[in-house]
Design a protein around this nucleic acid. Sequence first.
DNA 1: GTCTAATTTGCAAGTCTTGCTAACTAACAA
DNA 2: TTGTTAGTTAGCAAGACTTGCAAATTAGAC
Lengths: 153, 153
Amino acid sequence: MHSPAELATQFRSMGRKLTPQRQLIFSLLHNNETHPTAENLYGIASAQMPGISLRTVYQTLNELAEMGELQLIDLGEGGMRFDPNVDDHHHAVCGVCGKIRDVHVKGAASLKPNDAGDFMVSDVGVVFRGKCSDCESRAVKRSPVLQAKVSKK
Amino acid sequence: MHSPAELATQFRSMGRKLTPQRQLIFSLLHNNETHPTAENLYGIASAQMPGISLRTVYQTLNELAEMGELQLIDLGEGGMRFDPNVDDHHHAVCGVCGKIRDVHVKGAASLKPNDAGDFMVSDVGVVFRGKCSDCESRAVKRSPVLQAKVSKK
DNA sequence: GTCTAATTTGCAAGTCTTGCTAACTAACAA
DNA sequence: TTGTTAGTTAGCAAGACTTGCAAATTAGAC
């Protein structure tokens, strides 16, 4: 996604208005790597601008997506997620904490469907599911075995 | 997914009943490569068993999914799809007709997230988006240039 | 300051899925 | 065959997420 300032210019050059609501949403998305849902953003936006409506958040997000400034991610968890990173990247989803991490994948672009006839591929998406390092280390710390050891000292 | 007969045995051995509704759904899913939604299946099921409820279709699909007999696919098009193929495979989605095709992908299993710290991958999913051969050939047939050529003869 | 088209709000409604429960029935025993 | 009962089904209400709509508001231009 472009910077808030660049988005502002872009919106104005399209004959669109630069409202405080839009500016706020631009800033909340800038460098945002949390893959928020509309509701997530609405929560944060509301704190800074009481009265902003969820409808406006959805509207602005959709506009940005149409402009190619956001990537939409649907992981089947009941809620679209918005990713301001529109580079060629993929996602790793932790099954424990649910966090999504942007990842780059060597060789992803050259993957080919093996038995799909003449399917013309225009885009490849890779999703890794597993456990992130945070949840892994937390699991180790809390494991019964280790807890026992700890309580012995 | 196992065969309807095998599923029947499996259900009974779990102390569950083999109802006509379940049998119908088993048979509709057997060798089904259309990646149907619950609504799709409900439509077909209703034709063969008027009165069957959408609720029952959902219920049975969820049971099968829990048993590992179905793979759930969410492509963000507003509706879960059910795939009785639980082999290690991936999907190619045609952006024109929306059809989903099962595909095998050489090297998919060895893909690694490049910059995700110590993310422990337990599953990799690849989705190809593009245009299927049917839609491609249809597009060629209907292209203005070719239509002109045809009309000249 | 005035004007106007774009935008925001708030609510209703739409889509997909699940919760709830009364009525029903497959499975089993006698 | 009949009775029993736990598992199922059907139908509707409701929940989660998203969009349509219309009135009120406002950014941007003169």
